[in-house]
Nucleic acid binder design. Sequence first.
DNA 1: GACCAGGTCCTTG
DNA 2: CAAGGACATGGT
Length: 211
Amino acid sequence: MSGSSSSECARIVRVLNGHYGHVSWWPGDTDEVLIGAVLTQQTRWENVVRGLAQLKERSLCSVAALHNADPEEIERAIRCTGFYRVKTRRLKALAGFIMEEYGGLAEMAGYPTDILREGLLRVSGIGEETADSILCYGFLRPSFVIDSYTHQICGCARIPEQTSRLKALFEQVLPPDNETYRQTHAHIVEYAKEYCGKKRCEACILVNSNG
DNA sequence: GACCAGGTCCTTG
DNA sequence: CAAGGACATGGT
């Protein structure tokens, strides 16, 4: 019955792909995706959208603008996303890193994925999930995102692993293609939101069925 | 009113 | 290293 972790992982991918097909997820230019990646930490996406709108109204929805902005004005704009003081600090740290280390987003895009990842992880407030979200959805790199939903779904499929091992597992199973990475991660999140956390976790049922 | 949301950091044992 | 707390607003 239960095969290797990689075959279980491949089955999750296949089953969810059959369940959803193509989905459109995490729209926006690179600036917006980077900012959204911080705002969405432990926060519903609808509130992130509001925060991004508030930033746009103040012409603060770009890395360069945030770098020069008054922290209190950032706080006011993103208040609706919660944790607004910490997130302001994190946005400032991220913007400072990009502007001072690379001179801007466009310049940053010329560097290889592993170098960027290493740098992002050194920024205070940027952990693995946020870094990979930035790389995958902002810079369109093949860096698979592991979040709490991925852990939930993999738990359903009896693949309890650490984040780093899950990331390696998915990247080993999937073709190294950004579009595939984005689709797969989106499927996992949508599916977990829809089916996990119920009395009888329906995600477990589908994930363990024959797709 | 309790509980949770597309995490991360800091402090303790 | 694992576990627990802090950060904070908005929706169910």
